[in-house]
Design a protein around this nucleic acid. Sequence first.
DNA 1: GATAAAATATGACTTAAATCATATTAAGTA
DNA 2: TACTTAATATGATTTAAGTCATATTTTATC
Lengths: 143, 143
Amino acid sequence: MLTNSSKYALKAVLYLTLHSDENHKLQVKDISEKINIPKAYSGKLLQALAKRNIISSSRGPRGGFYVDEGNKKQTIMAIIDTIDGRKKMDACLLGLDACNEENPCPLHDLFASSRSKMIKVFEETTLDDLVGSLGSKDLFLYK
Amino acid sequence: MLTNSSKYALKAVLYLTLHSDENHKLQVKDISEKINIPKAYSGKLLQALAKRNIISSSRGPRGGFYVDEGNKKQTIMAIIDTIDGRKKMDACLLGLDACNEENPCPLHDLFASSRSKMIKVFEETTLDDLVGSLGSKDLFLYK
DNA sequence: GATAAAATATGACTTAAATCATATTAAGTA
DNA sequence: TACTTAATATGATTTAAGTCATATTTTATC
């Protein structure tokens, strides 16, 4: 479904959404330790996310990564797309290029409705939404 | 979602379900050419499926792989499980070991219902069902 | 302005999935 | 029984994902 990379990216962005803002930037080291992923690897992912404006960053002393109000309008799908590429989500279960609604593979109809529901949720759910639904319980799992 | 290997396996089994029986066995070469996957690779997958009795095989002259009536009771999930291992399907979207119904990760509830529906379909759909639903139209896509 | 702290850019290394190759074993046929 | 045909078992090679390392650039602060 998702590569390791986009799982990591999702975790990192969620962490930033909950624990950072313009005045509380976090460094790669802090983030990677908290969410239990290799530092150098998370650095790379965070850079890719910042370039696409999913998250924000600033260099130099007191710099770091953070999520501002604008970033919170980003969706889960935007994160996945940045790291894995959107196409993978739409791909035929059997990997058939020619498979689609009009020309479905034998598994297409079994799978299509679940998948499109899932994709819709990913496209429509923003970081704001996620944080909202968590309410006050900060606790979630990074392992 | 699925590895390349299990996609190939699904294609191969579907092909066998439609085009083979005890009296019409197919060799690796025939199958791999028809479904457009590397011969040596499909050989390995077919062997694994035969060992688990998802499909049948016999050696020697006039031997080959085939799907008999018993094999047709096998499910899509059995194929996936043989090649990828069942666990992957149940795994948390974020890859969190500790994530479950009682202790859900932030994405859990967004994803859980689509996934369990999908899993249920995979577990309940047999090769018989698939062939039935195809009706007379043999045509499907191997590319 | 000099210094230090941070992200950025780039590339190398490692591991697992995907792919290929082949020697061995079993079964049908002459 | 010898020969041929096919799966089986095993392992080598290749490729892509995942991981790590570091030189460069930017920015705050003294």
